[in-house]
Nucleic acid binder design. Structure first.
Lengths: 143, 143
DNA sequence: AATATATATGCATAATAGCGCATGTGAGCA
DNA sequence: TGCTCACATGCGCTATTATGCATATATATT
């Protein structure tokens, strides 16, 4: 598969569209926030992020235990056009609005720019629960 | 796979990007013309066209033995934005320019709006050769 | 040093996609 | 009526992909 087909391939998955959509809307978001916003297992989110990054969409930044992802700045025009199409998708898909709402709530919990400092007792967020890789309980309805 | 992921999936293939690109540029084109422009076996082109049509990109029109495909008019905004991205791709991919050049030559041969009237002896076009489904000999260089 | 948390990944499996080949279908023409 | 041509499709094969589970890695924290 050539380069451009790979880029389109990276968009050919509902989870990845949801991730990109959130990153387009909200800027830099860490994995645990994305995991909570989407209500999917962490390993799942992590792997889809890797696909998106490999396709050239994302850059990441490690800070402490967390990894923040964002849309790579300076994308070629056709990729920015594709992102515009994804943003436009929100008008067709209610689930993207729900993702955005959950993300908004989750991002409120940041303290000093950090994504989840001492959240365990506060909200019982999925990724900070005791059991590892437990499918997080749904924050809202997930389609 | 939901609707939008299916639409992106339909773009995640090099052959389909080439087909869409030609249809965006040239309007209505019949299968044999597309087959010659791409230099691929007819059954291959036919199947990819079906995928694109199923994803909602194309409408077709039968005329005699031929089937003409074109981009469906009145696509939702985000799909038109996607087509804009595909058109923009030409600046990154030389092969799309080559497709366009071969298509231009092939479309010149139309007579009275028909795609290939009595072309057999004239150009020995791939799809009009004696043997069925023989891989067409290359019209130009095909990557 | 031991433990807990955030993230990534190896492995097995099931689902899917593309391709080549042969053949079916339907229209036009001799 | 039979043949040819344009197009479509069923079948078998192979390659790729998504997912769940378990676990590795790395960075705090105690």
């Amino acid at each position: 598969m050539d380069r451009e087909a790979e880029i389109f391939q990276s968009l050919a998955d509902s989870t990845r569209l949801r991730l990109l959509h959130l990153l387009v809307r909200r800027g830099e978001i860490c994995v645990c926030e994305l995991t909570d916003a989407l209500g999917l297992p962490q390993y799942n989110v992590s792997r889809h992020l890797r696909v998106l990054q490999h396709a050239g969409w994302l850059s990441d930044r490690k800070q402490g235990k967390w990894v923040y992802y964002r849309i790579k700045p300076e994308l070629p025009l056709y990729q920015r056009t594709l992102l515009a199409a994804i943003a436009e998708l929100e008008k067709h898909r209610h689930d993207l609005k729900e993702d955005a709402a959950r993300a908004r709530q989750r991002l409120k919990l940041r303290r000093g720019g950090l994504c989840c400092v001492g959240l365990v007792s506060k909200i019982g967020a999925a990724t900070t629960s005791k059991s590892r890789n437990l499918k997080p309980r749904k924050v809202g309805n997930t389609r």
